[in-house]
Amino acid sequence: MIIKVENLTKVFKSYQRGNTFGEAVKSLFVRKPIYVHALKGISFNIEEGELVGFLGPNGAGKSTTLKILTGIMHPSGGKAEIMGYTPWKDRKKYVAKIGAVFGQKSQLLWDIPPVDAFYLNKAIYSIPERSFKKTLHKMVELLGVEELIKKPTRQLSLGERMKCEFIMAMLHKPKIVFLDEPTIGLDVIAKDKIREFILEMNRNGVTFILTTHDLDDIAHLAQRVIVVNHGEIVFDDSLTTLRNYLGVKKIISVSTMRPLPELRLPGIKITNRISDYKAELELDLSKYELNKFIALVNKSSTIMDLSVQDPEIEEVIKGLYH
């Protein structure tokens, strides 16, 4: 077990401010404290080499968990043991063994090339010259950024910068890497390259913990998903189990030679009737079997084309949040 988290809680103290001018003036002198329970006792374990996705709506407690696990923030209660360290107590020793990429906070320096920032990290982590050059060469090749690392950061595109952020986080060969929305704002090609890189590093034994709003990231990368809502874990299992969680459903698109029947049967829900001959529908397999459905439609209307897909992960997640 590389990460053990037990009953982690975090309570923030904030102050209530009014929205009228009078209340704003009053709040200059008297402020009413509010206590926000960001984490209400979450527990989970992660094995070495796992790639775990952390999902949840805004304010669910994902970033708070990540900040506690990276040693940035102290929890209000509970325990966390990562590689034998308590992140907020053994910060300096612990952070030498982890890496982090924050999609919205850059570790690069705007006016100088990424390679200069890499050298600053080399000095911070006391990485020996030979090991530094070897790792840098490998990362640069994997991400295809040989020419880019010598250009000033401000001249790079968001995708190119993000690739360099990954190099920055991996130079000291961390055993665990925390990723906070690493593909935010990236185009499809850049996302694919980053995802390939994460998978390659994961195959080499690096454990990844990924928080994201992009469910495609989860679908492409995560072997396991932890869903957090209102400071509590509402789901912790594989992506397949997550898809099955709310019932085994299929999304079907069908085109026929003759007009489609009404199909008002239990387990069949037409979501979009495009024409008399074409429709999209949702089939609940626990109520109506797929082969029976195909036989029914073929008999009544003769199928010309039919596609069967799993439901969009967004729909499954929405179900969990409610």
Binding site: T70, F102, K105
Partner: peptide, 18 residues
């Protein structure tokens, strides 16, 4: 103000020194 103070806390050195 920018939220990048956190980046100093994830480095294995004294925050003051960094």
């Amino acid at each position: 103000q920018e939220g990048t103070f956190d980046l100093l806390l994830i480095k294995p050195k004294s925050v003051l020194f960094l």
